[in-house]
Design a protein around this nucleic acid. Structure first.
Lengths: 226, 226
DNA sequence: CCGATATTATATAGGATATATTTGTGTTCG
DNA sequence: CGAACACAAATATATCCTATATAATATCGG
């Protein structure tokens, strides 16, 4: 865990967040202010602020007068976070496909093209996948959803790295193809087509993940079927 | 603005949040740490932590080395927050209607019944409306979505009190009837029926709000049409 | 003698205060 | 008009004190 920003608050926040997402700090692990202060060579103030922010984001759980721990996770969160992401993707993409400029549409295609070069680098592909979704939020001019999506994608990353590392790597190639389908739908500038393409994409992903986890997809969290 | 909790951090957080939601603290208003510390009779420590939390929640905007301000709002946020809420309602309700016990279903009916007594008290009806949605998240056992919904409902409250106070009061009676329709759909335990009822409800609401604001609903943020 | 309850000890969170440094902004002066 | 400067406020540290939860220990009744 190292600092790299130049406000200590942000530095601590990102150091802790990264540590939690990657699993370096395990779920349930105690985060003792004094220890962190020593480890990161800052006073307890930036630590406390960062912990409060992380609590608001759901990555840390603070029990009053007891302390902070890394928020626990379980496989049922996979469905929840997945459903949330899908909802936000659909909302932003529906609006974006109608509102985005031709230049933005081209940029979207470029982003997806670039990802094709990183099919064997899950970390990088995943990062660019995030950038992709956030870019769509920009095109839709939906800053609130963008911010929320950013954090939800971080939650997703944590779950993915904890539970789904193997299956995710296997799915990248398929996901890449599905992204091209979504791009094609964007080019029609028809929100319903875009939604359908995203549904198909996520339907496939959730099926793969649920199968890997050996659990049924939560009933009601449907993707395509209606 | 008064404190009432028994940790100063929580007290400050809720005092500021309430002040922002109600509009007592206006959008763009500066939140100077020292002033707040004096006003609320606490040191700057709980203030800073609360501001960081509120920043994470999107109610406060902090510019590094400049300070915190109440996050600005505009009418386009209405569509965004509305779309988010609708998405979360649909997700949680689809799952809840399949998973909830008969007792919970009855409790849901009771909640809606109770609200009928407060059609003339928008503040109270609105609070119970929030409780209703959060209860559904409980039934669906979706804690992450619940937490997110809670905060999004707070954003909604702020927008509503700022832009939509009048039209909201007028809509309560209709909304109450629509809630009964949603309840009926829950009783069928058919997620698609529930989703349709929620779509109809929100379709009507968004139409009324957009009309009141004299703007077209954001294209793509559809409710029913597909 | 043993189990349940009361007490105490300890670690750590929560909070206050004083102080120093950094940064952005606005103002004054050349 | 631009640069130097002054000021306000955020950022950060250190130290001190209090409050609380948890665990260890002691006490008491059966």
């Amino acid at each position: 865990m190292r600092l790299s920003f130049h406000s200590k608050n942000k530095a601590v926040y990102h150091a802790l967040l990264q540590s939690i997402i990657t699993g370096e700090s395990r779920p349930g692990e105690r985060l003792v202010i004094d220890n962190l202060a020593i480890e990161l060579s800052v006073s307890h103030i930036p630590i406390r602020e960062a912990l409060r922010q992380l609590e608001a984001d759901g990555f840390v759980t603070i029990e009053p007068h007891v302390g902070a721990t890394v928020t626990e996770i379980n496989t049922s969160l996979v469905s929840e976070v997945f459903a949330l992401l899908q909802a936000m993707e659909i909302i932003s993409s529906r609006v974006a496909c109608l509102q985005m400029s031709d230049d933005e549409l081209k940029a979207l295609g470029d982003l997806i093209d670039q990802m094709k070069s990183h099919l064997d680098d899950p970390t990088r592909w995943s990062q660019e996948n995030k950038d992709l979704h956030l870019f769509i939020c920009d095109c839709a001019k939906m800053p609130v959803i963008k911010k929320m999506m950013q954090k939800t994608l971080d939650h997703w990353d944590r779950l993915r790295l904890y539970y789904l590392k193997a299956v995710f790597a296997d799915r990248i190639e398929i996901a890449q193809r599905e992204h091209f389908e979504i791009l094609k739908a964007f080019r029609t500038r028809n929100p319903n087509e875009v939604e359908k393409a995203i549904q198909r994409h996520n339907q496939a992903a959730l099926a793969a993940y649920s199968n890997f986890l050996g659990m049924q997809p939560t009933p009601g969290v449907r993707n395509l079927a209606r």
